[in-house]
Design a protein around this nucleic acid. Sequence first.
DNA 1: ATCCAGGGGTCAC
DNA 2: GTGACCCATGGA
Length: 297
Amino acid sequence: MKRILIPRPNLFSFDECLWFLNRNYDDCLHVIEPGKIHKAICINGQNIAFTLQADERHLLLHLGDQQLSPQQEQALERYISDWFDLDRDITPFYKLLAKHKQLAYMATDYAGFRLIGIHDLFEALCWSIIGQQINLTFAYILKRRLVEQYGTPISFNDHTLHIFPAPEVLQSVSMEALRALQFSTRKAEYLLSIASLFAAGTLSKERLQQCSSYNEQVAQLTAVRGIGVWTANYAIMKSLKQLQAIPMGDVGLLNALTNHQLIKDRQDHTRIDKLFKQFKGWESYLVFYLWRSLSHA
DNA sequence: ATCCAGGGGTCAC
DNA sequence: GTGACCCATGGA
């Protein structure tokens, strides 16, 4: 039985991350059991399934009887680090939290919570488009239909895991098929055209990472039909981990700000900007912790 | 029935 | 750059 150990950093709570991934929604891209998570991913064209657990000092990756090359093992470790943002020292963020009266509690209540990523940019963009202007419960249902219909199922440890559909597959799906899954006409158009852009290589994570600045990344993404400021920043935050990304206008973000009495008027951009300036360099973390505050144990 | 949900596009000033 | 309007769909 293949097993890999990954050292766990300070200020990291596997339980807190797992809880968030499991909160109130039915995500089809992982399976969670007490203390562990199962997931399947595609790295360099190869499908890999794994179970992730934690002890006091490590994250434990269980691979069953899968054989991986050293390079694949490294790629998998990098994937895990990227997923849970393990390589980042988040103490500066905690110092900023401590200085903020209404938000200081987060440093203890959510201690060790990390910005959980979506490694695949195509998946991140599709997911944020699916989530546009509909409630999250329904968004997860739509994602599940899409993934079960066009993704790749993997059997592992008595679970059926799913890998998100490749753009090459999605680009040739018909509008009618997506409409039948209850995607709106607009969203179906957006998804199909973005799948084509990825399949053609016009759009890719690598290309976006070559941009010289965050602003340029936003510009490149928002030039695509269906990707507005919110979607672009969501993807940049979750996939590229550029921490200055803020999905402005996000309903959940505004609700959290209202709940904490940080704003009264949901259009008070001045106060919102002022708040985020206090968290310069950690804006995405602030957003993520505010989203965390929307769900209760 | 009506409003809302982790928005975006379009078009007029 | 800003604001008004429409788009789609399920849930509360």
